[in-house]
Amino acid sequence: MSMVECYLCGKGFVTTGPKVCPTCMKRLDKLYFEARDYIRDNPRLRLNVRELADALSADPRDVQTLVDLGRLELEGECSEEHESISEKEKLLREFEKHLKESGGKRSSRVKYAAEKYGKEPKED
Results as ranks from 00 to 15, higher is better:
residue 43 P to V: 04
residue 80 E to P: 05
residue 50 R to H: 11
residue 25 M to G: 05
residue 19 K to F: 00
residue 22 P to F: 00
residue 65 T to Q: 03
residue 49 V to T: 15
residue 99 L to R: 15
residue 54 D to L: 12
residue 115 E to Q: 12
residue 98 H to N: 15
residue 2 S to H: 10
residue 45 L to N: 14
residue 33 F to K: 14
residue 92 L to S: 11
residue 2 S to Y: 05
residue 84 S to G: 00
residue 36 R to E: 09
residue 87 E to V: 02
residue 22 P to K: 06
residue 29 D to P: 02
residue 45 L to M: 13
residue 70 G to E: 06
residue 43 P to K: 08
residue 81 E to P: 05
residue 9 C to H: 10
residue 38 Y to T: 07
residue 43 P to C: 08
residue 13 F to T: 00
residue 122 K to D: 07
residue 26 K to V: 06
residue 23 T to M: 05
residue 7 Y to Q: 15
residue 33 F to A: 14
residue 51 E to T: 08
residue 13 F to K: 07
residue 35 A to T: 04
residue 77 E to C: 11
residue 43 P to L: 04
residue 71 R to Q: 09
residue 59 D to T: 10
residue 48 N to R: 08
residue 87 E to F: 07
residue 60 P to N: 13
residue 4 V to Y: 05
residue 104 G to H: 06
residue 74 L to N: 05
residue 11 K to P: 03
residue 27 R to D: 07
residue 75 E to S: 14
residue 48 N to H: 08
residue 124 D to T: 06
residue 16 T to S: 15
residue 42 N to F: 03
residue 72 L to G: 00
residue 114 A to S: 13
residue 64 Q to D: 14
residue 69 L to K: 07
residue 122 K to H: 04
residue 81 E to Q: 10
residue 9 C to Q: 11
residue 17 G to M: 02
residue 16 T to H: 06
residue 31 L to N: 01
residue 71 R to I: 03
